[in-house]
Amino acid sequence: MATKERGRAVVASNRKARHDYHIEDTYEAGISLMGTEVKALRMGRASLVDGFAEFTDGELWLQGVHIPQYVQGTWTNHAPRRRRKLLLHRDELDKISSKVREKGRTIVPLAVYFKDGRAKVEIALATGKREYDKRNSLRERQDKREADRAMTTREHR
């Protein structure tokens, strides 16, 4: 008998989303996948760069996420960029949909991972950053890095 998986194994993360958006809320959602998609994810292959989520008929769908075809899959293989349904509770869906209706908000995927053997997606409610916001965050990160570097060299003396 196989042992049950424990913990969180990250397959793909969208680091660019944190650069391009102000993250307001994050949610963990299940994702409805085909068998070959699960096998491709277990091989550690996925891209979230162009991914986004939108509401259609009261359901949340993940679009633009690229899960490549499974190598050993035959005619049962999936389309790499197909729509995938996100599984959330109704009250969470209602809360997210009311916030998305406000101007400038969108839903972006931050990470795809396996949690206790089940595929999950971390999605975020976000607003887009302006160009000057991106420059400010880069400058702050660089200043923090330089300050940390100065502190470590001072400690070593």
Results as ranks from 00 to 15, higher is better:
80 P>M: 09
149 R>P: 06
127 T>L: 02
6 R>F: 15
128 G>V: 05
103 K>C: 13
137 S>L: 14
122 E>Q: 13
44 G>Q: 12
70 Y>I: 04
100 V>M: 02
41 L>F: 06
153 T>C: 08
125 L>F: 05
24 E>M: 08
144 K>L: 13
147 A>Y: 14
75 W>L: 12
117 G>K: 10
18 R>K: 12
114 F>K: 11
102 E>S: 13
92 E>D: 12
109 P>D: 05
106 T>R: 04
133 D>K: 07
85 K>F: 00
58 G>T: 09
136 N>C: 10
61 W>R: 00
53 A>V: 01
95 K>G: 00
12 A>L: 09
114 F>A: 10
3 T>W: 09
21 Y>V: 00
118 R>F: 13
6 R>G: 04
10 V>Q: 10
140 E>K: 12
148 D>A: 12
54 E>G: 04
93 L>V: 04
92 E>R: 02
73 G>T: 11
109 P>F: 01
53 A>Y: 06
63 Q>C: 15
34 M>G: 03
22 H>S: 02
29 A>L: 00
8 R>K: 15
22 H>F: 11
72 Q>Y: 11
13 S>V: 10
130 R>E: 08
43 M>Y: 09
90 R>E: 02
118 R>V: 15
32 S>V: 03
70 Y>S: 03
16 K>W: 05
79 A>I: 13
4 K>D: 09
37 E>T: 06
42 R>M: 04
149 R>E: 15
149 R>W: 08
30 G>S: 04
120 K>V: 03
82 R>F: 04
146 E>Q: 09
133 D>N: 13
39 K>P: 01
17 A>Q: 09
133 D>Y: 05
157 R>D: 14
52 F>H: 15
